[in-house]
Nucleic acid binder design. Structure first.
Lengths: 144, 144
DNA sequence: GCTTGAACCTATAGCGACTATAGAAATTAC
DNA sequence: GTAATTTCTATAGTCGCTATAGGTTCAAGC
């Protein structure tokens, strides 16, 4: 069987939006597929697999650059498993750092919300938490 | 005393970069400060407080739009504490959702790293985790 | 064969929250 | 007076998309 897929079918099968697929192609993450006479893209199973890999990497929080590295490593039959592991474990560290950041934020928000509702507007605990004049802090690793 | 500050001094005192301070001004988050004859910005203590508030909000993961809302609420002497609480607790939910996402990612990365190093390249567990053909997933709330 | 409507195409601009660059002018320290 | 530092403006780039506009192709029904 192994028929080819339109970009819409590929999108449905992978959960990756059509515009995003085209975007990945423009970035060079996905190879330019064969086109119909009219110029529509047609994808193979191999390309579907590659896209799945990209999506999975993204859903694990890897940057597109990291995903690209991973794809290169996988394609290089000489490459050691070690290089892949390294990328993954350095990413794991980043993930853990983000969790730690977020937990601090969670705790502070919880604390100020807990003491609020009991005080007047002038001493709103949440407002105080935000206004608290602390020492300059380095920006956290948080993106948003 | 209450002297004014240059943008560089303000930056050092708050930990907010000079370019970022100017950026906040352009967005209207910080009022345009008085200038010297030569056109250099001079800041007051009130503006320093406002900037601290913004930075604190950002470090708690609030968007600039949310910070702007919070500032408006604080300035409005009529406003109820409740509105502030609502913003904070809805943000807390977002934070918790992000933590949950990241924990799943952490677990998956840990799991694949644990089983790796024991297998040959061909069955690299990390590579498999990434290649795993799963059902289409909705994108997580993660920004980066 | 013809028409309709969905899916597809390209190109460009926008989002958020900055960051980087270039080149000029002001300020401060000696 | 000069040299170093800081500041100024304006513009473009980052990341990972998303949205818009305006046009073309494709598949199905008649």
């Amino acid at each position: 069987m192994h028929e080819t897929l339109t970009i819409g079918e590929l999108s449905r099968r992978t959960g990756c939006k059509v515009v995003t697929i085209r975007y990945y192609e423009r970035l060079g993450l996905l190879p330019a597929p064969v086109r119909t006479e009219g110029g529509h893209r047609t994808y193979t199973r191999a390309q579907e697999e590659r896209l799945r890999f990209i999506c999975r990497g993204r859903s694990l929080g890897f940057s597109l650059a990291a995903v690209s590295n991973l794809l290169d490593l996988l394609e290089d039959r000489q490459a050691e498993c070690g290089a892949i592991d390294e990328l993954a474990s350095s990413h794991l560290e980043t993930v853990r750092a983000k969790i730690a950041d977020l937990r601090q934020i969670e705790a502070q928000l919880e604390a100020s919300l807990r003491t609020c509702g009991k005080t007047t507007r002038a001493q709103c605990a949440v407002a105080e938490t935000l206004a608290a004049a602390g020492e300059p802090e380095q920006a956290s690793h948080l993106a948003g």
